[in-house]
């Protein structure tokens, strides 16, 4: 994951106080940040607060910022710290606890609970089920690696765990996915995958 062409130009303009560049950076990354934030906390209010804090912070501290190799990676790291901080603050813990009592029994993850609750209307199954059956940590690592295209090293930094843990988590997650898929989907159709020889 490195900067796309133009990212760094925007970043440099933003650092000089260019409000338009700041707005563009926000628009460019708000969706991916929001999506990633949901992996850390299913509470969208927490994610939204963290995103706002993040952008206010970088605007206020813009003059002291360096030029990151990847703006996206840089923003993801800050977002995770922001969300962790909100979640570990005493006030938030209280709030969360109340919500948990309402929605979540201790044995079920938030997502499985949602699937069960909405099961009648929305058939979240097969493929997407497979991902939701993983631990939230595995889901987060998978999200960073396969959807957002971060390297193992970057994931270690973002999640604040060792490189070895990243590797183990991903390996376990993929194994989990494979087992679920093995059970759910006939591999008969695999050969219809398009692998084209040029």
């Amino acid at each position: 994951m490195e900067n796309d062409a133009g990212d760094l130009v925007l970043w440099k303009a933003f650092k000089t106080g260019d409000g338009e560049a700041f707005s563009k950076i926000y628009r460019l990354y708000v969706k991916v940040l929001y999506r990633y934030g949901q992996k850390i906390s299913p509470d969208t209010k927490v994610v939204e607060d963290a995103i706002q804090d993040l952008f206010v912070d970088i605007w206020n501290g813009r003059e002291n910022l360096t030029d990151p190799d990847s703006v996206k990676y840089y923003l993801f790291r800050i977002l995770r710290r922001k969300i962790s901080r909100i979640l570990t603050s005493p006030y938030a813990a209280e709030q969360l606890e109340e919500q948990h009592l309402e929605f979540i029994s201790p044995t079920e993850s938030f997502e499985t609970e949602m699937v069960r609750l909405e099961g009648d209307h929305l058939k979240l199954r097969k493929v997407q089920d497979a991902i939701l059956q993983l631990s939230s940590r595995q889901q987060e690592a998978i999200n960073l690696r396969y959807f957002h295209d971060f390297s193992h090293h970057q994931i270690a930094e973002i999640m604040d765990i060792s490189l070895q843990s990243v590797h183990n988590t991903l390996q376990k997650a993929m194994k989990g996915l494979r087992l679920v898929l093995d059970h759910n989907i006939e591999f008969l159709f695999l050969l219809s995958c398009t692998l084209i020889l040029f």
Binding site: R35, Y36, L124, I131, F147, A173, M174, R178
Partner: peptide, 13 residues
């Protein structure tokens, strides 16, 4: 498995 892992069940704002 990789293609499935790259699927994003999350919601856009």
């Amino acid at each position: 498995i990789v293609l499935v892992a790259a699927m994003e069940p999350g919601n856009d704002p």
